[in-house]
């Protein structure tokens, strides 16, 4: 296991490096920030000064070497827009996004496992049919529509929760629920089908022959075996939110990484884009790493491989 994890870390570092190199050059293909930060009629000398101050006048390879040098000390440079270190901006936004992902996926998992297990116990029952229809609906509704309709009903009309911001707990309710709907819909489907196959497995027959009660068969024998595909898909969905729940963050005015990244791309704030991509990539790497560990805990057959 230790060997496997070390190997995994080294490979991830290699791909992370490839990723930042790619982002560095791709960002610069969008054009020079000068055009965006200075007035259209700014004199040529002012434009040259701007480029010199921020180092955009150097040949690309020199900029790149400087960028790599900065990487070694975790220095991604300063934000053009806010004049603050780029990494600090990203690290400020990260916890909001991570919490958003954690709460949404957590909610989705709880809903999916309970619903999926109950639906699988009696396939084609009324409960199963309702669960299937609702989960399909959940998996196919577009986020932005649910968010806007949610705001209209629960914030504007009923006034149960605030429309935006992150100060109070109530402000988290709507964004978390909106983000949880799609993963929940998907995960109910996955949990249901993997529970159905677990419940028809040979070891469940053994449990019946031992005289085990239905609750024991569902929650102790089948569920743990059925969790593996659910965890895989949940990890995927969590990675999607960490990568930037841009639409939801924008609608609810949530200062998360998604919103920060989009704004920075719009303004050619290269340093922030690079720092943002790097940090989210590390977060996703840590997430995948944790999923491997969860796998090893749930299924002894994956240990020591």
């Amino acid at each position: 296991m230790a060997y496997y994890l070390t190997k995994r870390t080294i490979w991830s570092a290699v791909s992370l490096f490839g990723l930042v190199v790619f982002v560095f050059f791709m960002a610069r293909l969008t054009g020079s920030p000068v055009d965006l930060y200075l007035p259209i009629d700014a004199p040529e000398s002012l434009r040259a000064d701007f480029e010199r101050i921020h180092g955009f006048d150097l040949p690309l390879w020199q900029q790149f070497v400087g960028f790599l040098g900065g990487l070694l000390t975790f220095d991604f440079g300063e934000s053009l827009r806010q004049g603050l270190p780029a990494l600090d901006l990203v690290l400020q936004a990260m916890p909001t996004t991570l919490l958003l992902a954690l709460y949404s996926i957590g909610t989705a998992l709880v809903v999916a496992i309970v619903t999926g297990a109950l639906a699988a116990w009696k396939p084609n029952s009324i409960f199963d049919r309702i669960a299937t229809v609702l989960s399909l609906l959940g998996a196919s509704l577009p986020n932005f529509w649910v968010a806007i309709v949610g705001v209209l009903i629960f914030s504007v009309t009923l006034r149960w929760v605030p429309t935006s911001g992150t100060g109070s707990a109530a402000q988290w309710v709507l964004p978390v629920l909106v983000l949880a709907i799609r993963p929940a819909g998907l995960l109910v489907q996955v949990a249901r089908s993997s529970m159905i196959s677990a419940l028809s497995s040979a070891y469940v027959k053994t449990a019946q022959a031992k005289g085990a009660a239905p609750a024991r068969i569902i929650f102790i024998h089948a569920l743990r075996n059925a969790m593996l595909p659910v965890i895989t898909v949940a990890g995927d969905q969590a990675a999607g939110i960490i990568n930037g729940a841009v639409i939801v963050e924008t609608i609810f005015g949530f200062p998360g990484v998604g919103k920060l990244l989009i704004d920075s791309i719009m303004f050619r704030d290269f340093a922030v884009v690079q720092a943002g991509v790097m940090v989210t990539a590390v977060a996703i790497f840590v997430l995948n790493f944790s999923i491997d560990i969860v796998y090893a805990v749930l299924d002894p057959r994956t240990r020591g491989q």
Binding site: S201, A202, Y203, K205, T206, A207, Q208, A209, K210, G211, H221, R224, N225, L298, D299, P300, R301
Partner: peptide, 21 residues
């Protein structure tokens, strides 16, 4: 109450019939 206590059963393919986890 009877299964596993008074009447019990074993199967072909014990690997599949034991819970892997």
């Amino acid at each position: 109450d009877i299964n596993g206590k008074s009447i019990s059963m074993i199967f072909q393919d014990p690997l599949a019939h034991l819970n892997p986890v």
